[in-house]
Amino acid sequence: MPELVVEGREFADEDWYGEDMVDRVYSGCTFRRVDLTEATTRRVTFTGCTFANVRFNASRHHDTALVRCVIERSELFDAEFTGCKLTGSTITDCGTRPLRVTGGDWSFVTLTGADLRGVTFTDVRMREVDLSRADCTGATLTGVDLSAATLTGADLSGTDLRGSDLTALDPSAVRLSGAIIDADQAVVIAQALGLRIG
């Protein structure tokens, strides 16, 4: 059982620097100008919460869920998410570099226009993620499930895409200069361009 269950509360101007949060549940809560720098979460669940002007700098999150949450005007500098679930969440106007994500489920996440230059997503499920107009220049998106993703206008220049599902990729609607792909992906892209192979 969770050691702490909180519903519908607002936290504002609080200092949670270095907080170690374990087995907590927050539902419908609002966090404004909360400092979570170097905080750690383990098996913490946030459902329908709003994070505004929150500092996640150098925070570490393990098996934590942020489901249908809104994260806006916040800083995720050097944050790490391992095995986390962010399904249905929206991230807007946030500092996301350098962000590192390993495993977990980021399906249906909205990252429209996000600055994702140099970020790392490894072995993450990102089905139907919205990366339209996102700047992923030099990012690492390896082993990522991008099926049914929205990628229109995304800049994938120099992005390492090896092992990722690119079936939703329209090569004519994104920038791909210098992107790194494997042989199987090259076939998928060629077919998307209407080329005949063989």
Rank of each mutant, 00 (worst) to 15 (best):
D184N: 08
Q185F: 00
I181K: 10
S177W: 10
Q191F: 08
R117A: 06
V188C: 04
T87Q: 08
D35G: 12
A149S: 06
E72Y: 00
F108G: 00
E19F: 08
V187N: 12
V34R: 04
A148M: 09
V144T: 08
L99I: 08
N57W: 11
T110V: 13
V144D: 01
M1W: 04
T150D: 04
P2K: 14
T41Q: 13
R100A: 15
D170G: 12
T152E: 07
E7H: 02
L169E: 06
S164P: 03
D130V: 03
R125V: 13
V54R: 00
R162A: 00
E10A: 10
V144L: 13
T64R: 04
R43C: 08
R162S: 04
E128V: 00
D135C: 10
F51A: 04
G113W: 03
V5R: 05
I71A: 09
C29W: 06
A58D: 01
S164C: 08
G158E: 02
V70K: 01
L86A: 06
L151Y: 04
V187E: 15
V22D: 12
R73A: 05
T30S: 14
V119T: 04
F121Y: 13
D184C: 03
G48C: 04
I189E: 01
S172Q: 13
G83V: 03
R55C: 08
C84V: 03
D182M: 11
G198C: 03
R60L: 07
A52L: 15
V119P: 02
G153W: 01
T45V: 15
L193V: 09
I91K: 06
A134E: 00
V101Q: 09
V174S: 02
R117N: 07
V174E: 01
T137A: 12
M21Y: 07
V144I: 14
R60F: 01
A179V: 11
C49R: 03
L99K: 05
R55T: 12
F56V: 12
T92D: 11
R97L: 10
V124Q: 09
R133C: 08
D20Q: 05
A179D: 10
R68E: 13
L4V: 10
S89F: 07
T64G: 07
V5M: 02
R117K: 14
T159Q: 09
M1D: 07
G153M: 00
A134G: 05
L66F: 15
Q185S: 03
T92C: 06
T110M: 11
V5T: 03
L161A: 06
L156V: 09
D93A: 14
R97Y: 11
T122D: 12
L156F: 14
E7S: 01
R133V: 09
G194Y: 07
T137S: 13
A114E: 07
V5A: 01
